[in-house]
């Protein structure tokens, strides 16, 4: 049953991704991206990652999409076709993809409960977090306690992004002059 859901969602993800490449109306591309995020979120739910799904929906389909739309309002809606279609990107992408495929050949199967990833650290979290932390949601336990330091880092990343956006866009309100201090 879940296999079928996976396959269906994957197929739709592929379709949206291809659509996002081909479209030149950036408005439509952003919407495609939003759909892509929602599909990914659904996939995450199907894969038992509810927290991630929640976040992906809120961030990908929510915050990112809004920001992208706002940017489109301020920039251009249509992508210009490039003068020269370079072959290089295709080559780079093909090589990268091939290397990745090669890498998957020795990976454990999907859903294999004996895969190393489930055996070592994660096993302990599942078995011990209940009495060590006392919080049912293991994701929260790991996020805020076992790997709380990573989360601190994550918070700092958001803070950095905020500082960055404020320094780039803040300060000069409603001025739309084209700067050209080119010295």
């Amino acid at each position: 049953m879940s296999e079928l859901v996976f396959v269906g969602l994957f197929a739709m993800l592929v379709l949206t991704a291809i659509a996002a490449i081909r479209l030149t109306d950036l408005f439509a591309v952003v919407i495609m991206f939003s759909v892509y995020s929602l599909l990914a979120a659904s996939l995450f739910v199907a894969m038992d990652a509810v927290d991630v799904a929640f976040t992906e929906a809120a961030v990908g389909a929510g915050v990112s999409t809004i920001l992208m739309l706002a940017t489109l309002v301020l920039t251009d809606r249509w992508e210009k076709p490039r003068k020269n279609k370079a072959l290089l990107p295709l080559v780079v992408v093909s090589i990268t993809g091939a290397v990745l495929l090669y890498g998957t050949l020795d990976m454990p199967d999907l859903g294999d409960q004996n895969a190393p990833i489930h055996q070592h650290v994660a096993k302990r979290y599942l078995s011990d977090s209940g009495h060590e932390i006392g919080v049912p949601n293991v994701v929260t336990s790991i996020l805020a306690s076992y790997r709380g330091y990573d989360t601190f880092g994550e918070l700092i990343v958001i803070f950095t992004a905020g500082v960055g956006v404020m320094s780039l866009l803040g300060g000069r309100r409603k001025k739309k002059k084209v700067e050209n201090n080119d010295t």
């Binding site: 990908g60 990573d150 880092g153």
Partner: peptide, 14 residues
Amino acid sequence: SNPLPHVLILTAIV
């Protein structure tokens, strides 16, 4: 399911 990838990806999404 394994919770650890979820945690990592939460961070990565942010």
